[in-house]
Design a protein around this nucleic acid. Sequence first.
DNA 1: TTCATAAAAGGACATTTGTCCCAGCATCAA
DNA 2: TTGATGCTGGGACAAATGTCCTTTTATGAA
Lengths: 195, 195
Amino acid sequence: MIRINKEVLDYITKLYCAKNHQGIEILDIMSGQHIIEQQSNVYDVYIVKSGLAKCYLTEDTGKDFIQEFFGEGEVFGEVEMFNDELSFCTIEAINQMEVFRIKRNHFTQLVETDSKLNKLILKTLAQKIRYTALRHSYHQSHPIRVNLLRLQKQFPNFIDVIAKRDIANYLGITERSLNRNLKTLNESKNNRSIN
Amino acid sequence: MIRINKEVLDYITKLYCAKNHQGIEILDIMSGQHIIEQQSNVYDVYIVKSGLAKCYLTEDTGKDFIQEFFGEGEVFGEVEMFNDELSFCTIEAINQMEVFRIKRNHFTQLVETDSKLNKLILKTLAQKIRYTALRHSYHQSHPIRVNLLRLQKQFPNFIDVIAKRDIANYLGITERSLNRNLKTLNESKNNRSIN
DNA sequence: TTCATAAAAGGACATTTGTCCCAGCATCAA
DNA sequence: TTGATGCTGGGACAAATGTCCTTTTATGAA
């Protein structure tokens, strides 16, 4: 649900300092701001320094589907770069953020010349494939209630950090359905503590 | 649904010939054979030369979730390699296949030294991220009927090539539900042709 | 404060999907 | 032939989810 990548964060931070900020800038992002817009060109690669963003696609039905929540060290914009296509998702800050920004050409050059970064990016992409596969499979194969319990176990306070609508869009369900399940979860929890 | 990657197929075929088969072998795979097994070590990277495989995860509930169908040029085993983890899915031939097999160490070395292959693999990984994101979003945001129409448009004969059970597992629904939707689709088609 | 707006919660009903089960049909071996 | 087995399609009912709508509770701006 909330992805972080400490390895990348450390490496980019090191690069940022070592090269005396050349080619890498830090941006402040307000909550609600769109860093990347669906169906538009992407000219830079970003790495989350602090704060939280949601990555979502808007369908022709008007429904939003949240792919992931990006925390520290998560990279975005790189998929569009390697594919050389328009962005397939929107990246929106859900609180105050700081991000590293690296221009496309500069990032390409870094990946070509810095073999450690090259490996790190290969690994990062592979991780993205792995965890989205695992998550989608789990969501499809388990009832909503079980998915909520799983989130609760992994991120005990997710319900406070992330808006209900976003949680519903992440699970691919309606808010109504989410509420129903949360209610029955709490009821069964209370019943257990009474008995 | 059925992924192919001509660019990779061409490049690997070229490598296979140029290096006089060194480090790359071709394997014959029978229908039904498991090339990679979930939760086990992966010692090689594979590229589909011909035939079709399904890539699926089996959940603790016993349900299978099909990630994708791999056709010519699709790469697998590389995600596990870059992550250095056990396989998260099973790759099973659904008809007679031929695959290229490259040993892990050799593939690592190729990716490090052959900058064209390096770029190709980066692109391949990025494509996997992109199309799975698009597909899952579409599936979650549209009713089954619309998803079937979409498959029908993209792969007119998918219903003949792929078993019903596999289609259901790909869409994350039961066979019963798949049948119902297929039936109403055909009925509305017949009604249109009558009027 | 007050008003406007958004977020959260849930009632009522329609629709969809899942579960369980059975019938029909083909295949194959005894 | 006969019986066993597996595959497919679909009926009937239960359960889950979506849709629509109302009420309440924050939240923020004027």
